[in-house]
Design a protein around this nucleic acid. Structure first.
Lengths: 106, 106
DNA sequence: AAGTTACGTGACCCATTGGTCACATGTCAA
DNA sequence: TTGACATGTGACCAATGGGTCACGTAACTT
């Protein structure tokens, strides 16, 4: 009941979700590299990355004077498993596939 | 980029997550019924349910003077699909199964 | 050694949010 | 129709959180 709070709080901000999107596309990026994609100061980005790291959504590795950031998908999967049991999983996924199909057209 | 923000903001609060847990166990509950399980005023619970409803995580149906609340798992599944692609899904799920097994013991 | 690059810390300001209360509306039962 | 029950609204207060800045440390380069 404690550490999952960090995960949800971390995901609550759109900037942090965008950072996860960036890492989802290209993993192992550096702070200044990520900063260049955002309309924000380096300090703001650093704060957000720190929140993501403390939540376990981002894993870091130091390399010289650089700090590399990697996306960790495990907490995301845990969110899924909390409110979707194995029986309704197929149903929900099928519903979403149908929804996407209808929105995208033929 | 707009309505998914409501979902994540809604999930950011522990009380609201607990409300989802309650609905995950017993669906279709009423406001006063949910209030009795929380150490909070009815107004606080009402506010939280409103946030969940606007996010689409809870679907409601009026029945006389009562308002029934149901859990909607679709947005949860969408979160999952955003950062876990189909290729790493099995790997992540297997990793979590292993983690649970180790924590629960033999 | 000196300059440059990359990351880090603490304090500060403004906006948002969780929670409560006084008050109000609608609905069922006798 | 009177009273009890279930839900709603608006204002209000304290606390949290996003963003910036001045300043500081560590590492690569020449």
């Amino acid at each position: 009941m404690i550490d999952d709070d960090l995960v949800f709080k971390a995901l609550a901000d759109p900037t942090r979700r965008f950072l996860l999107d960036l890492l989802f596309m290209v993993d192992g990026r550096t702070l200044t590299g990520l900063e260049s994609e955002l309309a924000m100061t380096r300090f703001g980005v650093m704060k957000h990355l720190r929140v993501l790291e403390e939540a376990g959504l981002v894993i870091t590795r130091r390399q010289g004077r650089e700090k590399l950031h990697f996306l960790n998908p495990v907490p995301i999967r845990q969110i899924h498993d909390r409110w979707i049991d194995k029986y309704t999983e197929h149903r929900t996924a099928a519903l979403l596939d149908l929804k996407r199909e209808l929105e995208e057209g033929p």
